Amino acid sequence: MLLEPFQKSAALSLGVELELQLVNTHDYDLAPYSDEMLRLMSKYELPGSVVPEMTSSMIEISTGVCHSSDQVLGQLSEIRDALIKSADRLNIAVVGGGTHPFQQWHERRIYDKPRFRELSDLYGYLSKQFTIFGQHVHIGCPDADSALLMLHRMSRYIPHFIALSASSPYVQGQDTQFDSARLNSVFAFPMSGRAPFTLSWEAFGQFFEKTTRTGVVKSMKDFYWDIRPKPEYGTIEIRVFDTPLTVERAAGLAGFVQSLASWFIHEQPFMPQEDDYMVYTYNRFQACRFGLDAVYVDPTTGEPIALREHIRLTLRQISDHARKLGASYGVHILGEDAELGTNDARWLRETQQRERLLAEVVRRASMRFRGRG
């Protein structure tokens, strides 16, 4: 099978997808209301799209093509407001976060869609365990080779993305001691992890042809990589973010990605190497486990540094680009959070310590998504 052509897109354009939880307002467990939500949401004229996800207690929203994090925030806010109105009519709530803190995976229902049924047949119980919630950020690239160069440069910053977005400390009612436990579920899938180190679309096409010839994959959708090319959009898609508790944080993270991409394009700060990946899995684990308290091993020097210090260094390096793109405010907030060691995982834990009831944590998280609390 041949790899589809890489479509043209505006460099540094943005698209954001958020996978969201639907919960009842009785005990704040997940509720299988995606069909009803989609029916109500179809009555609104909105940017982007609202679609089902793997199980029926999930829903995915996405922006259209945006050119700034402010535009991302505007579109996400408009969709969020419609979601809240629809959820209120159904007496349910919409919540962010990378995992639902106490849902039981075996109670989930696979959404009735051919691709989801096919995945359920292939992956068995993993499909229901995939009731996890992430933010995906697309960044436009001028051509295919530039996209692969961008992808491998971005890979150095996967720990930064994980730690700043981490919002999944609880699974099945237990504190996992991970800030982002969601990514442990992703790693169970055979085509997860990192993309192969190729810097030309021709070489990537040869890899794709080999894997499809074996029957291991049928399309680009079968790759669950942390970052993958999306040739049909002319973008790369970063997939490691937990869904934040607020759309404001989601937009700030998109602004961080866009500012990094601008730095890469205009200053060419480094050339990625295959050896960058020697510390990739370790750095990824550190960020999942410890969040902003992680250790980051610099791929170039091999020297360990506190991840929050490397985040602060990175934000200084991209500050001019953030300013020119209008992303300074959101990026500044992320910098303050790195300074304080504050992310959504910490908020969830502190709320649980105060309230002593995970259902109350979910209720309060639903209020945060609404823009309250």
Results as ranks from 00 to 15, higher is better:
Leu46Ile: 13
Ser120Gly: 10
Met150Ser: 12
Leu18Lys: 02
Thr198Asp: 07
Gly193Phe: 12
Gly341Cys: 02
Gly326Val: 06
Ala254Ile: 11
Val171Tyr: 12
Lys218Gln: 10
Gln352Leu: 08
Ile227Glu: 07
Glu60Arg: 05
Pro142Asp: 14
Val186Asp: 05
Gln352Asp: 14
Arg156Gly: 09
Thr214Asp: 01
Ala93Gly: 02
Leu148Met: 05
His67Ile: 10
Leu348Ser: 10
Gly234Val: 01
Pro231Met: 05
Arg354Glu: 14
Cys141Pro: 10
Tyr157Val: 03
Trp105Tyr: 13
Arg364Pro: 00
Leu90Gly: 02
Val216Glu: 10
Ala294Gln: 03
Gly48Arg: 03
Gly215Leu: 02
Ser62Gln: 11
Arg115Ala: 02
Thr25Tyr: 00
Arg89Ser: 10
Val279Trp: 15
Val295Gln: 01
Gly97Glu: 08
Met271Ala: 14
Glu248Ile: 03
Leu46Asn: 13
Ile162Ala: 07
Ser259Ile: 14
Gln103His: 07
Arg89Lys: 11
Ser366Gly: 07
Ile238Trp: 04
Ala261Phe: 13
Arg89Asp: 06
Trp347Glu: 08
Arg249Pro: 00
Ser62Ala: 14
Thr99Trp: 02
Val16Leu: 05
Thr351Ile: 03
Arg115Asp: 02
Glu232Pro: 00
Leu334Ile: 04
Arg364Phe: 02
Gly97Leu: 08
Asp88Glu: 13
Tyr44Trp: 11
Val137Lys: 08
Leu18Pro: 03
Met191Val: 11
Asp175Phe: 02
Pro159Thr: 06
Trp347Ser: 07
Met54Arg: 03
Met154Val: 08
Phe187Ala: 12
Pro304Leu: 12
Thr214Gln: 03
Arg368Ile: 13
Arg213Glu: 11
Gly373Met: 12
Asp81Ala: 10
Asp275Cys: 08
Glu107Phe: 06
Glu355Thr: 08
Glu209Asp: 09
Asp293Arg: 06
Tyr157Thr: 05
His100Asn: 00
Tyr123Cys: 11
Val247Glu: 15
Asp179Cys: 09
Pro244Gln: 11
Ile333Arg: 08
Thr301Phe: 12
Tyr28Pro: 02
Phe285Met: 07
Gly252Asn: 14
Glu303Ser: 14
Thr211Glu: 13
Leu307Gln: 04
Met54Ile: 15
Phe178Met: 06
Leu14Ser: 07
Phe6Asp: 01
Glu274Cys: 00
Asp222Val: 04
Lys43Asp: 14
Phe204Ser: 03
Gln21Arg: 10
